[in-house]
């Protein structure tokens, strides 16, 4: 990874940005970008806020007292509260196992960890149904013991875990590689235990990447729709998360309800982007595609 701070000198050194004759070309492209992003990203996002406040404060409060809405909020928060810590442990372990090591199959293992990003969320949900559904592989066994996974919280959590599995490992791994092993080795030489080395040396060097991974995992876990649709059964007031509430309110022409729930999730997205922006400026986390 080359240093991305090279951006500044290049931004002004390009021959095209200097010749006054080409300025119209620049502004044409800038106008295109504003137009395209406006139509695809900006206007739709603004619309969420406009529609949510269309009915004024009473409209918003009306939804906020709806018990199915409150149940959806609760379920979404619980799901994220279980998914994020579990995936954090996994992400850290995977990154620690892979960083600064060379072994055959390492690249393959990284691809495997990334796999959930390539699989359609609906297919991920389908896999869980085939495994734990009442006609699935473990269906009879779970039935006999009275354990419900599909159409219940465990299924929703497993679907969220599947979808968000790669985020933390993917953010932390490059940070660990960049930090190198010298400091850890020094700590070990000075008699620190593995835990001490982790808490005092490793963790501080990856904290911003870890935080960014946490934020992404949380945003995706709270917003996951496709996989959760398949495993939750969408039982109103029981297994309905916020994204499912949005769809149901929308199909029942309850625009205010749909947009109030959308407002909450849009605020979550804005917070996610602001945190990312701050981390990128302050801690040099690089933008990358997911």
């Amino acid at each position: 990874m080359a240093d991305s701070s090279l951006q500044q000198p290049i931004a002004t050194a390009g021959p095209k940005s200097q010749g006054a004759t080409f300025q119209w070309g620049k502004w044409l492209l800038v106008a295109f970008v504003f137009g395209f992003l406006g139509l695809i990203l900006l206007v739709p996002t603004l619309n969420v806020f406009v529609q949510a406040f269309k009915g004024g404060l009473p409209g918003l409060l009306d939804t906020f007292t709806n018990k199915f809405f409150l149940n959806a909020v609760k379920l979404t928060v619980i799901t994220a509260a279980i998914t994020v810590p579990l995936n954090t442990v996994f992400g850290l372990c995977a990154a620690l196992s892979l960083a600064n090591k060379n072994f055959p199959g390492r690249a393959l293992l990284i691809s495997i960890i990334d796999l959930p990003f390539s699989i359609s969320p609906v297919v991920a949900g389908l896999m869980l149904v085939l495994l734990f559904g009442n006609r699935g592989w473990f269906g009879p066994l779970l039935d006999a013991n009275g354990i419900k996974i599909i159409f219940a919280l465990p299924g929703i959590v497993m679907a969220s875990i599947f979808i968000t599995m790669p985020f933390i490992a993917r953010e932390v791994l490059p940070a660990l590689e960049e930090a190198g092993t010298q400091q850890e080795e020094a700590a070990a030489t000075l008699g620190a235990t593995q835990w001490q080395t982790f808490w005092r040396v490793t963790l501080p060097s990856i904290k911003w990447s870890l935080l960014y991974g946490l934020i992404l995992t949380n945003a995706r876990a709270m917003g996951e729709f496709g996989a959760v649709t398949v495993v939750s059964g969408n039982i109103v007031g029981k297994t309905q998360t916020l994204p499912l509430f949005i769809e149901e309110a929308h199909t029942q022409y309850n625009s205010q309800g749909a947009y109030t729930a959308a407002l909450l999730l849009a605020c979550l997205a804005v917070v996610t982007l602001v945190v990312k922006f701050v981390l990128e400026r302050g801690a040099g986390i690089q933008s990358k595609s997911h």
């Binding site: 290049i10 931004a11 002004t12 390009g14 095209k16 940005s17 620049k26 492209l29 800038v30 970008v33 504003f34 992003l37 990203l41 900006l42 739709p44 996002t45 619309n47 969420v48 529609q51 992404l216 945003a219 709270m222 917003g223 996951e224 729709f225 496709g226 916020l242 994204p243 499912l244 949005i246 769809e247 929308h250 749909a258 947009y259 959308a262 999730l265 849009a266 979550l268 997205a269 804005v270 996610t272 982007l273 990312k276 922006f277 933008s287 997911h290």
Partner: peptide
């Protein structure tokens, strides 16, 4: 390559589709 007002803002909102839940995107 270019400097223009609002550049940082545009750069930040490119990731919006990663952060905005798909149900919200579909709705709006």
């Amino acid at each position: 390559r270019y400097e223009f007002p609002g550049k940082r803002f545009l750069d930040a909102i490119i990731d919006l589709p990663f952060a905005l839940p798909t149900a919200v995107a579909g709705l709006t």
